[in-house]
Design a protein around this nucleic acid. Structure first.
Lengths: 132, 132
DNA sequence: TGCCCCGGGTACCAAAAGGTGCCCACAGGA
DNA sequence: TCCTGTGGGCACCTTTTGGTACCCGGGGCA
């Protein structure tokens, strides 16, 4: 089968750097990006850094802050500082962030529903490394 | 909102390393993994390395081979060597591979349909870096 | 006064990922 | 004979990524 016989959207779409799907993948490639977006979403769209940190085992303070800064720069997350004493900080998904949540949730849902598939993948790797 | 008020699948699902969604994400985190799976799928489920290489601009021979080896180890792709002269090699998606294609296609489709959203993200980043 | 919480920042380091360049054998065409 | 293309391997280097450890100021608490 050649590329020429495929529908238009397929023929052009994923075949250069800078196309939409590859940009989306790059966005999600950070180790904690989707975790944080997803958790923020689960927690109702907003939450305080402390709560976020405790919700994601393995996430370090540094990586959380760093990832949140990047998400802020992309306009996916907004940082609100409530001027009380002591200062309360809250991160919430922006409108754009709530859009990006869609593919994140798709992925998480698929993953949760097809854990068996992933188990099989891991089994294959384990057997390949042992057996040869 | 607290975690306790959420449905079960959500409360436990993505909150530890090794849960299904995070494993799926790790699988997709390689720069060329989804590109190769997707292209293999578009090309009809199988193709020769040369064709694959030419279909994905920016992909180097080394990275292609390396990624294909990993996919083979995971049992997502099968390598067939036709014993003719010169040897013809073909990679095709396995049954497991055709399962994993599902979330890949979801992502690619969403990306293609929501390019505007990704444009906005890039704009935000550009403006953030300029303005300050 | 010491201690822990909060939210955050920074310096430094280790590991992983990715990319380039060069190598192999074999075959066909000029 | 040289150059092309096929399918692949390996050495090396750079960049990116992620993680640890330590720092700040402020407040509550014993």
């Amino acid at each position: 089968m050649s590329l020429a016989s495929l529908p238009d959207a397929y023929r052009q779409a994923p075949f250069d750097e800078g196309c939409a799907p590859r940009r989306l993948l790059r966005l999600f490639s950070g180790k904690w990006v989707t975790m944080i977006l997803h958790t923020l979403h689960l927690l109702g769209g907003a939450s305080r850094p402390g709560a976020l940190l405790r919700s994601i085992p393995g996430l370090s303070k540094k990586m959380m802050t760093q990832t949140l800064r990047e998400l802020e720069e992309m306009g996916l997350v907004a940082r609100e500082v409530h001027q009380v004493m002591p200062p309360v900080v809250e991160y919430r998904l922006t409108v754009l962030g709530r859009k990006i949540i869609e593919p994140v949730e798709m992925l998480y849902r698929w993953g949760a529903e097809h854990a068996v598939v992933l188990d099989r993948v891991d089994d294959n790797v384990a057997r390949a490394r042992k057996g040869g």
